[in-house]
């Protein structure tokens, strides 16, 4: 999938960010080209989830230094909703429940907002129904979920599938999957991973933030990065993930310190 002349989608340089005066990201560097799948691994508290949220524009974090260039634009200048409209998508580790809003009307609202931004055609409820039913097949989701309130009473696996359904609907250029595999049983993991694989194209890219190597058995990364104390301290190919699985994280830190 990768060729050296692939377009650079994301360029992160020396990114530092803090929350409540505490610095979490301490100089992250990362380059993502179209068609690439990047896995960011690391122990709890290493800053992986913060990195995802900062890329998506969570207002709780303050970026203190560095830059993030996304398709030639300075991403940090844009509020979260404009990043989303430009094609940045975050699949949440803990998707929010919105009782009172049906999943289908929420998805249609989000889709039409994107379409308006892209100059595409907006869909009325009937047209959208046809469109969304096709997308549901991708994550083997019962269309009955469309009539239920967003994520309300969904199991962990159903919530994660719903995130991937949103990804399918919004067709992002850069998807960030934050711990999408945590809390999934093996069947749900297989379904989610197969959905994600079908959504990958040579024109988009993906960053998977994960604690476990297990997800990487189903979605093959081109690069594996190890994050520790707010920085990427090692980068390798898919074999690095296997080594991490076998040896843990401590040797990486020792190596990086050496």
């Amino acid at each position: 999938m990768i060729s050296s002349n692939s377009r650079v989608i994301l360029e992160v340089r020396d990114l530092r960010a803090s929350i409540g005066g505490i610095e979490i990201l301490k100089g992250v560097n990362l380059t993502v080209r179209s068609g690439e799948v990047h896995a960011i691994m690391g122990p709890n508290g290493s800053g992986k989830s913060t990195f995802s949220k900062v890329l998506a524009g969570h207002p709780g974090y303050t970026v203190t230094r560095g830059e993030v260039i996304y398709n030639g634009k300075n991403l940090l200048d844009l509020p979260a909703e404009e990043r989303a409209r430009e094609g940045v998508f975050l699949a949440f580790q803990y998707p929010i429940e919105i009782p009172g809003v049906s999943n289908s009307s929420f998805l249609r609202l989000a889709y039409n907002t994107m379409q308006a931004h892209r100059g595409g055609e907006e869909l009325d409820p009937l047209e959208f129904d046809d469109f969304i039913r096709e997308k549901c097949k991708l994550v083997e989701m019962d269309p009955g979920f469309l009539d239920r309130s967003v994520n309300e009473g969904f199991s962990g696996g159903e919530k994660k599938r719903n995130e991937i359904l949103q990804m399918a609907v919004l067709e992002p250029k850069l998807s960030i999957l934050d711990e999408t595999d945590s809390g999934l049983d093996i069947d749900a993991l297989r379904i989610v991973a197969s959905g994600v694989n079908k959504l990958m194209t040579p024109d988009n890219a993906m960053i998977m933030v994960t604690h476990y190597q297990r997800l990487l058995n189903y979605i093959t990364p081109d690069f594996v990065h190890v994050m520790r104390s707010g920085r990427i301290i090692k980068t390798g190919g898919r074999e690095l993930a296997l080594e991490l699985e076998a040896r843990g994280y401590d040797w990486v830190r020792a190596e990086a310190a050496a």
């Binding site: 909703e81 998707p95 929420f106």
Partner: peptide, 11 residues
């Protein structure tokens, strides 16, 4: 909650 919706393109 606001962030979740913003991240789906809603202002």
């Amino acid at each position: 909650e606001m962030f979740y919706l913003n991240s789906r393109g809603l202002d």
